[in-house]
Design a protein around this nucleic acid. Structure first.
Lengths: 152, 152
DNA sequence: TTTTCTGCAAACGATTTGCATACAC
DNA sequence: GTGTATGCAAATCGTTTGCAGAAAA
C-alpha cells in the first residue's frame, strides 16, 4: 500500500463527485508528490510549473488546491506568513498526526509526530458535544541556527 | 493581583521601549478590556468604536494591534475566517494555556483549558534545540447546534 | 452535446504604506 | 523642539470571480 495519494486516487475521488479529471488537476497534485515534505503555496506551485507548464493560470491553481483540499488529498495550513500553504494528507487515517514547529525569526518549519491529542479529542467530543474532524498544533519559537546567529 | 493587563501596564511597557502613550492606543486596549473573551478583528474594533470614537482611523487600529502584540498584551490568532483576530494575553505566564475549538460550519469558537502541551514543549526544546515561545492548538469540527440543525 | 473547467483580466478584501500634520515627551 | 504617531488616501498582495472559449464525459 502506497503511503501517499496517487493520481489514480485523484481520478477516483473526482468521479465520486461530479468532477472531471483534467491535466491541470493532475499536474498540480503531481507537484506535491514530486516535492514531499514541502509546504507549498499557490505561488510556489506556479513557480515550480513556470518552466514546464507556464500555460496553467494562477486561478486554476487556486481552484485546484481548494478542490484537492475538499477531496482530503491536500491539507491546508496557515503558518502566518500571509499565504495559505498545502501538504499531502497522510493516507492512513487517524494515525501519525504531525505538528509544526515554526521559527519566528527565519520561518523554518520542522515537523514532528505525536499522538498525544487523540485522547483530548475524545474528551472534547464528550464535554462540548462537538464532532471533531481535525486538529492543528503549532509551536512558535526560535530555531537553533537563529539562536546561534543572535549570539554573534 | 489583576488577572489581565491594565492601561497602566500599557504605559509602562510603552515607556520601556521608545514608544509614546497615546489616547488611541489606550482606547484600543480598553475595547479588549471591555469585551473579555471576545476575539476581535481590526474591523470589529473599528465598529465597536464607531459611535464613541469614529475619528480613530483603521490604519491606526491596525498599527495599535500590532504594537500591543509586540508588547505581549494582545495575542494574535487566526481562525481561518480571512482576518487576524486578537485576544488579551493572560498575565500570569506559563499557566492556563487555552485552546480553541472552531465550528467549521458556523464559525463559533469555544475555548478550553489544558496544560497537556507544557511537557511537550520541553521535549521539543531538547530534541530540536528550539527555543519555544508559544504554542497554538486548534480543533476543527461541527458544534452541537450545527449537528442538530443538519439532522432536520 | 451537455456540463464542467480553464485562462484571462478585473474585482475584492484585509492589511500596509507614504506623507503631511498633530501630538507626546 | 524633536521624534514619534495619526489620519487619510493610495498602494499592495493574496485570493476570488465573471465570462467567453475549450475540453471532459
Amino acid at each position: 500500500m502506497a503511503d501517499t495519494f496517487t493520481i489514480h486516487d485523484l481520478k477516483r475521488k473526482l468521479q465520486e463527485r461530479q468532477h472531471k479529471m483534467t491535466p491541470q488537476r493532475q499536474i498540480v497534485l503531481q507537484v506535491f508528490l514530486d516535492n514531499p515534505g514541502e509546504h507549498l503555496s499557490a505561488e510556489d506551485v506556479r513557480d515550480l510549473l513556470k518552466e514546464s507548464h507556464s500555460e496553467i493560470g494562477l486561478a486554476t491553481i487556486y481552484r485546484s488546491l481548494e478542490l484537492l483540499s475538499e477531496l482530503s488529498i491536500l491539507e491546508k495550513i496557515e503558518f502566518g506568513d500571509g499565504c495559505a500553504r498545502y501538504e499531502v494528507t497522510n493516507v492512513q487515517p487517524n494515525t501519525h498526526h504531525h505538528h509544526h514547529i515554526i521559527c519566528e525569526n527565519c520561518g523554518k518549519v520542522i515537523e514532528f509526530e505525536d499522538d498525544l491529542l487523540e485522547s483530548l479529542e475524545d474528551a472534547i467530543e464528550k464535554k462540548f458535544d462537538f464532532k471533531i474532524n481535525n486538529h492543528q498544533v503549532k509551536f512558535f519559537g526560535i530555531c537553533k541556527e537563529c539562536q546561534e546567529r543572535a549570539q554573534n
